[in-house]
Computed example of a mutant assay.
Amino acid sequence: MTEDARFEDARGGPLRLRALDADDLQVISSLCQDAIFPITEMAWDRKARRFGLLLNRLRREDRLVAQGTEVERVRTVLAIEDVTAVQTNGIDRTDHDTVLSVLAVTMEPGEDGTGRVLITLAGDGAVAVDVEALEVTLRDVTQPYRAPSGKIPAHDD
């Protein structure tokens, strides 16, 4: 019998971060840039007031990935708490073969601590998540793996 891969076998351990303000969210946004996910890995649990994405995140925090020497991804859960509403724009949620790419995760403040977490996607798509208060977590849930493309995505300025 073979064993599953473990984080202890890789360079660095799993990330587990929480954002409670805009500065914290900026860190999470930079780590989520170029993460990809099938549209089927997006869910809102109304009763628990939680919205989540299961991302294939580029491991930008790894020195070799940052240098472009190796390109690794890791499965990561991005969870948003205290959610009151979720809206999408520019994506067809009925097309279950759609794969989306994250460009940024930002906060548009509202009144009395409320606001909207905006997940901007490549191709003019977006997910807007209304919250009573900002609480976003990012947690790696699998062993890192070599990215099939072997490349870091390039962006036009």
Rank of each mutant, 00 (worst) to 15 (best):
A133N: 01
D82N: 12
D45C: 06
L118P: 02
R139D: 04
L55R: 07
T106P: 02
V131N: 00
G12C: 09
Q33L: 10
A122D: 12
Q26M: 12
V105F: 06
R49K: 12
G13T: 06
I91Q: 02
H96L: 10
R18A: 15
L53W: 10
D156I: 04
S30E: 14
D97F: 05
D112F: 09
E8Q: 08
T84R: 15
F37Y: 13
T114C: 06
D23G: 08
T2I: 05
G113Q: 08
P144D: 02
L20R: 14
G12Q: 03
T40N: 06
E61P: 05
L53T: 03
R73C: 13
E135D: 04
D21G: 09
R46M: 12
D23I: 05
V71N: 10
I119T: 04
V129N: 01
L138W: 05
P148K: 04
D92R: 07
M1E: 10
V136R: 00
V99F: 01
T98I: 06
A19M: 00
S30L: 09
P109R: 03
A85W: 08
Y145M: 01
D62T: 11
G110Y: 08
A79C: 11
V105Y: 03
T114F: 03
R60T: 13
T106V: 09
L20Q: 12
D156G: 04
A128P: 00
E72L: 15
L54M: 14
T76V: 15
S29V: 07
L78G: 13
L58R: 13
R16S: 12
Q33K: 13
P148Q: 03
Q87A: 15
D21E: 12
D124C: 05
Q26D: 13
A126Q: 10
L17E: 11
A154G: 02
L138V: 00
A104T: 09
V74C: 14
A133C: 01
G90I: 07
G12R: 08
M107Y: 03
D130E: 06
W44S: 07
T69P: 00
T88V: 14
P38F: 03
D82S: 15
S101G: 06
Q143M: 01
D124R: 07
L78Y: 11
V136S: 01
A126I: 02
D82W: 13
G110T: 03
Q87V: 13
R60E: 09
D97Y: 04
A79S: 14
R75K: 15
L121D: 01
G52P: 00
